[in-house]
Design a protein around this nucleic acid. Structure first.
Lengths: 204, 204, 204, 204
DNA sequence: GATGAATGAGTTTTCATTCAT
DNA sequence: AATGAATGAAAACTCATTCAT
């Protein structure tokens, strides 16, 4: 029992620190943030942070893990088999667009900024997010679109294009595109229509 | 005349420095690169850099500008009126995908990493790249797809989705997706087909 | 009784801590050792150490005292009067050379490193080791060598030279001299011979 | 020429820094000295030190090298062949005893304190000081004492004992022995006599 | 204009010590 | 008495920027 209490205290302190780090990282960016900033924000001493995290970088990966867990817990993926293709696509688009609402946008920005430059984080993102997601989706997706005459090779590329479309829209959102800010809610519906039917037949 | 010669020397020196900076930034990332690294690479003294650029950050924006000019010069945008919609879309996709091949991928990575964090760079990207591109394309695109029964509001969102798709694919490429590395050349054709016709009719 | 038991517990705990400290100091050196290292080695909490010793430095002096007592207990000095000069010299040399064998070499190294820099330890060494040793030896030694025509002033210097010889050999041993490592056992015999008879008469 | 001037400036600056470091090291010891202390003492900025020395430890080895060079320059070793054995011994003892007079005593203390604990410095001391000295002396010494009926093996040990005697006396001097401080000048004469003739014949 | 030595603020990280439980 | 989390001072080292030559 005591043991469990201890561990809960440790977890709570870790979360306190990560929360503080997230706030400051979001406001100033990873590199511009100092350990002191985070300690002040958390209301603790500088050294205390190192009782819970080995380095400044560990705070970043800690935030990443936390975000991943939170997203997965809030939006559990349904088995693709229970969906038809349109529903699958709408979900595939909707999920990340909505998962990052709220605080998570700020965190996504931080992580995005480090991804191109931080090897460890990149690997984490690749193995924890992209690979599982793509792997899960590929099996179902290639089978479905095969019925519509699309080769598996192409299907896998298209899946990446769809994932990319979502990521690219997030990027533009972060960069401050006003139209997207206004119309964000419309996107899932609009995009799944576009992907299913295209821009439509030649008018002639 | 002397004045012109002077100015040419200045421009040449600036380019020499930017080229060196690009090399080192690409290899080590922006933050991990020191002014000394760049000076060594350029074969000049540290202080000389400050005769031509006000700060380390100015080197980054300088590279950004240079890259933009180079891309525009190499791939001048044709007047959209001369293209039909399929050709337009293929071009709209192809342009950035190909423009960043070669060294520019590395630079794009650097800039991408700074974008979420660097206000100045973000504004530059927004006003110099995204806004002009979207503005130019919107007029033509909304008109074209209107003929296919798509509302202008939706058309503008779709244009961002297409741009986003391209950016997202670049991001995944940077993050090391193997399939994309192999099949990069197929993308323009495949994606324009997808966007024009969708995934195809329901098989039933 | 309880009081005595209490005190025995305290002494036992102190010895436990000192033993742990000695192990870690010997392995890593004084400055490179952390209180946590010692606590881990002793299987206790960091804070507990401070219930028994006032500071990290106090651990060092504690070890010093312990070592001194142990050496004295193991090798009680016989009354010089019971020895003739050759036996006295052999003993005077032998004692420190052998006393430090084993773990104590490592501790001697640590203490030696702190001696030049640590005032408190230096005083301790001077008053607890050198002064008593020299004082005890001087009375006997000056009287003995007076019979051989050596002035008391010179005798006292010579005594220091002999003590120095031993210390210097220990130093060289610590510094890694291979010959000494191999022939360590020969030293007492060889040196007492040298001191008594010198290098021998001029061959001519 | 300009090149030479540059290099002279660099050498001068290095010496300035080493001199400052020696002063502060001698006063406070190596570990208790901060880079800031040294910078203040030298009248320069902290960072400047790192333009000339890679680390704090490099300052220590720098001092060591400087001391070695200075000692060698001031007391060039004569070829042993030009000396008879008594002269050789007196010189062998005298040299280090006198070389360390003055500032060098303080430096020797610093180095002595680090020797047992600092691998790099220990190697330096071994290869630069002890090995060459012993090597040079051994050839001559073993040959000489062979004529007096001493085996080469023993001769080599005796040589170390003599060197040790000197080092041990230095150690006692550093530890504050008062008699040695007063009578320091007598030592070479007294010790060479002792070594050559021993304590004298048994009075009976 | 070019140089590169000097600067010193700023950063992460460590660790002896304290003290509430 | 034992604990070990919290503390925060301290320290080595880096590097963008300046400026005298």
């Amino acid at each position: 029992m005591t043991d469990t209490l201890q561990q809960q205290l440790i977890i709570a302190r870790k979360e306190q620190i990560l929360a503080a780090a997230a706030v400051v990282f979001a406001a100033k960016g990873f590199h511009a943030t100092t350990i002191r900033d985070i300690a002040r924000q958390a209301g603790i001493a500088d050294g205390t942070i190192y009782n819970y995290f080995g380095s400044k970088t560990a705070l970043l990966t800690g935030i990443f893990e936390q975000m991943r867990e939170r997203v997965l817990r809030q939006n559990p993926l349904p088995a693709p088999e229970t969906l038809d293709l349109p529903a699958f696509i709408r979900l595939f688009i909707q999920q990340p667009l909505l998962a990052l609402r709220g605080d998570n946008f700020a965190l996504f920005r931080i992580i995005l900024a480090e991804l191109p430059v931080n090897e460890e984080l990149r690997t984490l993102y690749h193995t924890q997010i992209m690979q599982p997601t793509l792997h899960l989706a590929e099996a179902y997706f290639t089978a479905q679109v095969a019925q519509r005459g699309i080769a598996p090779e192409d299907a896998r590329l298209i899946l990446r294009a769809i994932a990319g479309m979502v990521q690219g829209l997030l990027l533009q959102y972060i960069l401050g595109d006003e139209l997207l800010t206004e119309q964000w809610e419309q996107l899932p519906e609009l995009l799944s229509g576009l992907l299913l039917h295209g821009l439509g037949p030649d008018p002639d």
